[in-house]
Design a protein around this nucleic acid. Structure first.
Lengths: 249, 249
DNA sequence: CAAAAAAATTGACTTAGATCAAGGTCACAT
DNA sequence: ATGTGACCTTGATCTAAGTCAATTTTTTTG
């Protein structure tokens, strides 16, 4: 499997020794715990749609996404399903100290995880202060994201939800609008159904609202999954968020 | 101000030196940083309904709730409002490293905060490994709570939302049902409006659903804000959650 | 390439919860 | 005790999004 640099977020720390550049790993390198880490590390690739772990299953591993998109979700007995985390490269999977998964984790596209056995990882977490610091940073970032997501789920209209999801995906792929052109284009790596699970809607409503935004000239579509936004500011207006919004510095 | 022990969650660590027992403080005591801490610490009490900080305001302090109930919320330009955090005694307020608040914080009942200046607190966070560990634990717990909340907001019916909120409040007040009696009773320290902000509903719907649960014999009401649950298992069924649910070990 | 499967769209109809509009209760301050 | 304002309830009506049911488009695969 070939891994190309552009798939990693700019938050990645550059690390010469480490063949795979992603945040959780490189944070330790500073402490030259490489040997230990290298011994623990293993990679596993899952096909699109495959389950990675089910809620209640034993969590032998923690790790992080190095390639692809995964999702964290919760399912009710009658089948109602809510996504509660969208995992892109550099995102962490699992909770140190927790033996059984609280959520379902599924591969949305093909996904490669860099995995560590949980027990030795927890020891490292105790021994390496930098790693703990990094984990805290990541947990707090996720908490902020979860809280914005709660506003979306509790108070936004279907159209605002779709517009918000599009801006979230665009931002997370670091396709910032070119200040001059103000135009962006990106792939939705989610099916309409996955979007509906993210947004707390039905897939029919997702389809209708995407097409409404298209008819209103806010977005263009190519092959159903590729979005072109001519006027990013216009899309931002459709999210219902504050004009300055989401700077969370 | 007199503070009585029963107002603190059992998660509190006992600490002889510290006059106020709450988790964030006592974690440091282990490292005998008491002198430094004592110098930094200040208490402030807010009346019910008072704003503690507005989104975008400068955050000079971080701290934790020692008494009362506060809430974290987000407001859209047109006034739609979503609660994103319910802060009970021992809960942390603010994010180390962040200069401006991302959310509104308001006192729901009368609230006392134990506050630390942010900058020196951040230094402590760098110097005291235990404190960082404690903060990580707390952030991960909040993240789990946020994810359950997302399921509630995205997929539950109004009746399930109310039943869920009641069980959440009962649990957070540690009013576990007596195994023999299976009956609990507790105070809702939230108005119908605050409940609607928590649940992503209108206050009319909250009122109707609370009264529907009452008519159906799931709960009894005393003075509008005091709830008596004769059969806690029955209430749990009404939440829509798995029978075993929410053990998140 | 054709057939089958998967994903997406579109239409007709229903419904849970929102909205709008009175009233009723309760705490407490004069 | 009584009046004022905050809080809550209840009813009538509306509507955004859900549900059910085809149909079309895209992708996969034999």
């Amino acid at each position: 499997m070939k891994i190309i640099a552009s798939q990693f977020t700019p938050a990645s720390i550059d690390c010469n020794e480490c063949p795979i550049k992603h945040r959780a790993v490189c944070a330790y390198c500073e402490k030259s715990e490489m040997a230990l880490l290298e011994a623990m590390k293993s990679y596993k690739t899952y096909a699109a749609g495959d389950p990675i772990i089910f809620a209640g299953d034993k969590m032998a591993f923690v790790g992080s996404v190095v390639f692809g998109v995964a999702r964290l979700s919760q399912t009710m007995e009658d089948g109602r399903k809510q996504m509660v985390g969208l995992l892109l490269p550099s995102d962490f999977v699992g909770r140190p100290g927790r033996a059984y998964s609280a959520f379902d984790v599924e591969a949305t596209t093909e996904v490669t995880l860099c995995r560590f056995e949980r027990k030795p990882f927890e020891k490292l977490l105790r021994d390496i202060p930098n790693l703990r610091e990094r984990m805290l940073e990541m947990a707090l970032d996720e908490l902020d994201a979860a809280r914005e997501w709660m506003l979306l789920l509790g108070r936004k209209t279907a159209r605002e939800k779709i517009a918000s999801l599009l801006t979230i995906i665009a931002r997370r792929q670091n396709i910032l609008p070119d200040a001059a052109k103000n135009e962006v284009s990106f792939d939705l790596s989610l099916t309409r159904e996955a979007m509906s699970e993210y947004l707390g809607l039905t897939l029919e409503t997702v389809s209708r609202q995407i097409n409404a935004l298209r008819k209103d000239g806010v977005i263009k579509l190519e092959k159903k999954r590729h979005v072109i936004v001519n006027d990013f500011a216009r899309l931002l207006e459709e999210t219902g968020d504050d004009a300055d919004g989401g700077f969370l510095a």
